[in-house]
Amino acid sequence: MRNNEQRVLFLGFEALLSPIRLFATSCRVLVFSIVNIRLHGREITNQMFESAVLSLPIILFSLTIVSLMSILEFSWHMKLVLKQDALVPGFSMVLMVREVAPVVTAMLLTSRVGASIAAELGFMKVTEQLDQLKLLSVSEVEYLVIPRWVGCVFASITLTLASLVTSICVSTGIASRFMNYQPHEFFNTLFVFTKAFDLGGGLLKAFCFGTIIPFVSCVCGLSCQGGSRGVGQAATRAVVQSCLFIIFADFFLSYWLWTF
């Protein structure tokens, strides 16, 4: 029993450390060999397309519903506290920019992009395609990890912005339909509390989440073992660990950016 606990603890530490190690390796490859690095341009554009463009419909659909919900809930709470809903647009926009848009986008990206990265790399590992890459002396960090990193960061930032635009449109529509607002009136009060710093913080969050997802998933995929069962486990682990890391990072970033 004690042995088992030690093993679990060890595995936990390894799960925490190996994405960081891969991140350090990629940074080293990027920085120290910036002269003779081979950036695989075709791969990078492919990954950008895969993670940003193909996730666009599902993220826009989900964020439409989420922002719809959040504005209705906010007006309910405001009516409870202040007996009026004049401050609803400002408040809900602040929460949207700081919290909801980056986190929900990142969670959806995790399930779409993270799982598919882990499954793809795991499949390559199981079918010994990675060994073939090694034989061809193609670096797996250069060829596999860095394109996914660039694609995922690009996707995370652009999709967060897209979801913000969606949420502005949706909440304007909902407010003018259900809450006796005129659209221009609503739009004017939308940015009362939101500062440029909030938008910057939200985008910084998006950047961090976009970095977390590919590294955690790449580690899970590259360390996959044991046939089809291993591929499934790798994809599962990628989703779970990225979600956990995203929640942790979100907590620390919120605390560091806005509480001080």
Partner: peptide, 9 residues
């Protein structure tokens, strides 16, 4: 094995 990954995604 590819199908398992796809199913998870």
């Amino acid at each position: 094995a590819r199908g398992v990954g796809r199913a998870v995604k």
